[in-house]
Amino acid sequence: MRDALRAVRHAGAAVSAGEPLLELRPAAPEPPRLQRAEPLEGDAVRVHRVPGEPAVGIAAFLDGIQESRVIAHWAGGIPLVHGTVAAAVRRRQERTLVTWRPDGVRLERSLFVPRAAIGDAAWRALEAGCPVRDTLAADEGGPWHPQELTARALSAVQRRREAVETACAELWCAEGDGPLFVDGGIAAAGTAAHSARAIGVVKSHRTLYVDGDALPVVLGLAAGERTTAFTVTSPRRAPVASWYLRLREPEARDALWGLVRVEVAFEGATAERADLVSRWLLAERSPVSLPDPRWGAMAYGVRLTEEYLRAVTR
């Protein structure tokens, strides 16, 4: 951050003071939606009680964080955003999480700047002082709404975060040992999306991969039950096998509370594998992740990894 501030001062930008994190700014909400997915077990989405007792199977946890804030404005109100992204694989060793290996932790701090908006001379001045990343595509032209530039910077930071997460996931899948709990989906995680070692766990459900008939099945899952596995496909992502798993009873809460969507590589996805992975995930319900408000669906290992990343980035 100090390098970036020095660089923007040197380049002649007006430094901002006390700007809030961009991640905390209200964003335009993505509309919730239902999207039908093709079942992998049978021809309809059904309820399956996960057989057997929860079992410890996860060997490591992967999570990433990002933090960005406007630290200066270029002439014309162009925001210069400092972003920090980090991802880490934390391996479980004797019931304690430890850093897997040095390159299992990725940390980047960069200035996210619209190059076309500030011009090449200013870009070079900034680049001389700290790492700089362009928030615009090469062929984009102005003029730009300042808030759009801020949103572009935030998107760029998010892409970098996904990139470092993917790098960590790929490294584990290539050289790690045992199943990796990935906080979030794995469909965009490069080669990890095809690895049997990566298990993505999605906690947010803006898109529910069911049609109207199957929706009551998902919402009605009891703790320890899963849905039929189905295929999630996307034009720019790898196809993955997925299913919903209820970790905790929602009781009087929102029907989506305690619900996760699991993603595993499409290759080798069977009902037995879905049951096995579900047992692993059910075992991760304890200890609880309180006081994190997402504790109903958040594994404690993910919370620890997040705390670790906060500690190393601040």
Partner: peptide, 24 residues
Amino acid sequence: TPLHDVIGADGDPAAALRAPTDRT
């Protein structure tokens, strides 16, 4: 709060011992 540990173990002290990860 200690209550969080109770919740995590479903009120069963033995269950807390079976947790795959120890609290930091």
